[in-house]
Nucleic acid binder design. Structure first.
Lengths: 352, 352
DNA sequence: TTGTAAGCGTTATCAT
DNA sequence: ATGATAACGCTTACAA
């Protein structure tokens, strides 16, 4: 009973048709008479054949139906970010029409040689998430293979299509909002400045070599309005990291800003907690802004004043770009806009 | 310049060796003299050949190096759960040694025909996450193809290896802990009872047809100690869902339990918020227990009394099981144990 | 509507 | 250490 698996040729033979006909029955690419189709299906059932082997099909077709999604962090950490989760949903939706699956690839995690999985994996295209300079090797490997690439929130060179956000302008809007409320003394909580960075104040030197585009651009946005706003870098985009930053920023009662601009909603949530710890009432004693416009689980009753970004749309756009590239179309880079959303965490500064 | 991609045959010819030798240079499966290796590598570089085509290799090898991970929810929703995220990390680690990637598959999401992606995807094995009866078709499709399957937290029949948790016993431990503290009046917040379920009290009728194993088993664990504990089903494992449930449970001051057992840490976090809303002090006025032992972002300064489950280990075990099955080894089901962890959210009932 | 035939690019086996 | 050969299982022009 240890006979090998039936192939489409076996099915064809049993059904008394040619292999090509049997193939067509399964792919549906060409009309087949009902009678033959039924005979083929019956033969398949009899032999326990459950459709073409995807490996063989993909060799012949030159397509595997798989899109690689490349992260620079452990999966669990990446998915901590609600924006990434929404993006994945959009991506999954967008590639569903071509029946593609998403293959998770981690780059630069201990134990994986650079680009190895990228060259061994049968992917038709790749989406790089948050492309920093460290991804250069991965990128080179992909190009060498002629695999279409799209980058989300990052820069991979002129000829790689990007899906980005108006980070600087968006953050500037929030800063302007605070200024129009009368705030003059604000502080910033930034996202990590490097792939792995310690928490701490950002001096001019550190500022110079921020390698994470999003972080730099959003910081620039604040500085457009408040050129001297002090900034504290968090180690991650999380509530806990925001709490740490918030504590640092609110530590000295003599030198306390009247508003904090956090570079993500999660960080903002952490700042809110830090404020609570200090006995500060938001927004009366302190205004706090976020960024992303995601549902932060457990944030109620606060509604953050924030910039809502179309995270799912970004994923969808990346997916659509990939689909287009597989169809040999040129695809342009796209930059999405965030929209200002006022919540109940901002107000004029105390005593105004 | 639109010439087709170089193949290993081209490289071999250029290097003046046979295709098999060239192949071996890349796979390293057989010793090759340094001289020839270098010639092959040079030829490859000259032709812009960057290694064997994974599609062809996987046909020949009969392996694609891809493990499917099957979810029953939109990706974004699944990854909301910290336990799932940890599990993914463990899974990724465990399959890394065989250089396998993880292919995300969603089952039963609008637009995907049942089992379609499972039969089209070139996967060597599959991990079903949270296998409910609704996954029967997916399972059948996999078996028909002879693809090894492992199930995490679910039941797929006797001959499918499972990775599970001692849910009932673990939950019973927490209930016992509360009883030993003197609580007699407790309520439960459960995980969803069905794949999609509305929030609400669980009456005997609803109790009967809970299709989610985890939910049922943990509820059984409480009822082992408190046979009449009322239970309120949440719609998801999230802080917000826990908040809703907590509000319902704490609504009536006359009928207020002195302790709430939540079936996940996230739900427990929500209950904590509900308690705060009502002006109740935890643990003085109300004890709250969680389940999972994960870091709930933003939960500080609380430390939940909970059962810590080895989530990463579960993922790793599933990955190792898959690797073993691919090596034609039999693998047993494994059931992990949770360990009791006391935090600062439980105490004797008020006035005792 | 169905059949014929020619690969898709690689690797395992077996000689040499 | 290297080479010749034969699959791996399928799809798709093209012909009938």
């Amino acid at each position: 009973m240890s006979t090998r698996r039936a192939t489409i040729a076996d099915v064809a033979r049993t059904a008394g048709v040619s292999p090509s006909t049997a193939s067509v029955v399964f792919s549906g690419k060409t009309p087949v008479s009902d009678a033959t189709r039924q005979r083929v299906l019956d033969a398949a059932a009899a032999l326990g054949y459950s459709g073409p082997d995807p490996r063989a099909a993909s060799l012949r077709r030159g397509r595997s139906g798989i899109v690689g999604v490349v992260f620079q962090a452990p999966l669990g950490a990446a998915f901590l970010d609600p924006v990434i989760r929404l993006m994945m949903d959009g991506l999954a939706d967008a590639v569903a029409p071509i029946d593609a699956g998403l293959l998770l690839l981690r780059e630069g995690v201990a134990g994986d040689s650079p680009g190895a999985s990228l060259t061994t994996a049968p992917i038709d295209a790749a989406v790089l998430v948050g492309c920093t300079p460290g991804m250069a090797e991965s990128l080179a490997a992909l190009r060498a293979r002629g695999i279409p690439v799209v980058v989300i929130e990052g820069d991979a060179g002129a000829d790689v299509p990007r899906v980005t956000l108006d980070n600087r302008e968006a953050q500037r809007s929030l800063a302007s909002h605070l200024r129009s409320l009368g705030h003059t003394d604000v502080a910033v909580v930034t996202l990590p400045t490097h792939r792995r960075s310690d928490p701490g104040w950002i001096d001019e030197r550190r500022r110079q070599d921020i390698t994470v585009d999003v972080t730099r651009h959003r910081l620039d946005g604040v500085r457009d309005v408040y050129p001297d706003a002090p900034a504290y870098a968090a180690t991650a985009s999380s509530i806990d990291a925001g709490l740490v930053a918030g504590r640092a920023i609110l530590a000295d009662p003599q030198h306390r800003p009247t508003a904090v601009l956090a570079q993500s909603d999660l960080l903002a949530a952490g700042v809110l907690r830090a404020a609570e710890e200090r006995g500060l009432v938001v927004p009366d004693d302190l205004s706090v802004t976020g960024f992303d416009g995601v549902d932060v689980d457990g944030l109620a009753p606060y509604r953050l004043t924030t910039m809502a970004q179309p995270a799912t749309e970004k994923g969808r756009a990346a997916g659509e770009a990939v689909v287009a590239m597989l169809g040999h179309h040129d695809v342009p880079s796209v930059c999405f806009s965030s929209v200002f959303r006022e919540g109940n965490t901002t107000a004029p500064p105390p005593g105004s």
